[in-house]
């Protein structure tokens, strides 16, 4: 059995990766939003997520105890060493694609951090409590737009439906438990995500009904990220993200 710190390190790293990779995607909207207020709203989400990533990376680095910084974790790993869910690395697509991704993710995170705030690990509990406040806003933003696009024009309706359908196969991963989750769950440190699935599904259904949209049809669920197997998109993102760190390994910025 792996030692407890190692398990917590992995857990913290995964949560850091989810926030870091999604923040990167949202930051790509900057100067590309459908109107100025929404451009700024998307940047706000990205900034919250950067702050969250920093918190979980910092804790991971501490648990690892090898003198690394949060920047080393964010910038100095290869594709196969990132553990974010596939869903958060999916490209922004059009505005509906981004909103569908935000809806699936933020509703999940709402239930997830609501549980993690009761973790027996104090740092996780504190990070979760802070995150929960932000996630409530992220969820409200995603729900609001899902309803407006779903019940807006014919074009926005089908764009939103197509986005929901095409991202559906990446949602299964949110509810996977592996040995890290299970062992930490026994110590009341981690969240039982399997137990969140029904609530999540119900919540999504409620929103979609109000938005006059349909729940995506059940499909094969993609998997792999918890073992570091990603989509082709991640490597390109890291190529951009890590460019300066790789080109000037001795530089401090």
């Amino acid at each position: 059995m792996a030692d407890l710190n190692e398990l917590k390190y992995t857990y913290s790293l995964r949560l850091g990766d989810d926030a870091w990779i999604l923040s990167h995607r949202l930051s790509e909207w900057c100067s590309n939003g459908p109107f100025l207020e929404e451009d700024l709203a998307l940047t706000n989400l990205a900034l919250d997520l950067i702050g969250r990533a920093q918190g979980f990376y910092k804790y991971a680095a501490e648990l690892e105890g090898k003198g690394k910084t949060e920047d080393d974790l964010a910038y100095r790993r290869n594709e196969r060493q990132y553990f974010n869910h596939l869903l958060v690395e999916m490209p922004n697509g059009n505005f509906a694609d981004t909103i569908a991704r935000q809806l699936y993710v933020s509703v999940f995170e709402y239930y997830f951090f609501n549980e993690l705030k009761n973790s027996s690990d104090e740092t996780f509990a504190a990070l979760a409590a802070k995150t929960l406040k932000e996630v409530k806003y992220h969820m409200a933003h995603a729900v609001d737009w899902t309803i407006r696009l779903g019940d807006g024009t014919e074009e926005s309706h089908w764009k939103m439906q197509r986005a929901l359908d095409s991202l559906w196969m990446y949602t299964g991963e949110l509810f996977e438990m592996d040995e890290v989750d299970n062992e930490l769950l026994q110590q009341c440190i981690a969240v039982d995500v399997i137990a969140l699935k029904a609530k999540w599904q119900e919540h999504i259904e409620r929103v979609l009904k109000q938005a006059t949209l349909k729940q995506a049809e059940d499909a094969y669920m993609q998997t792999g990220s918890r073992k570091g197997i990603h989509t082709e998109h991640l490597g390109h993102m890291l190529g951009d993200m890590q460019y300066l760190q790789r080109a000037y390994p001795d530089a401090k910025w």
């Binding site: 459908p34 505005f95 309803i147």
Partner: peptide, 12 residues
Amino acid sequence: EGAWVREAAEAY
């Protein structure tokens, strides 16, 4: 590219 989003918000 944002025109359809603004239209949707208006229509809603």
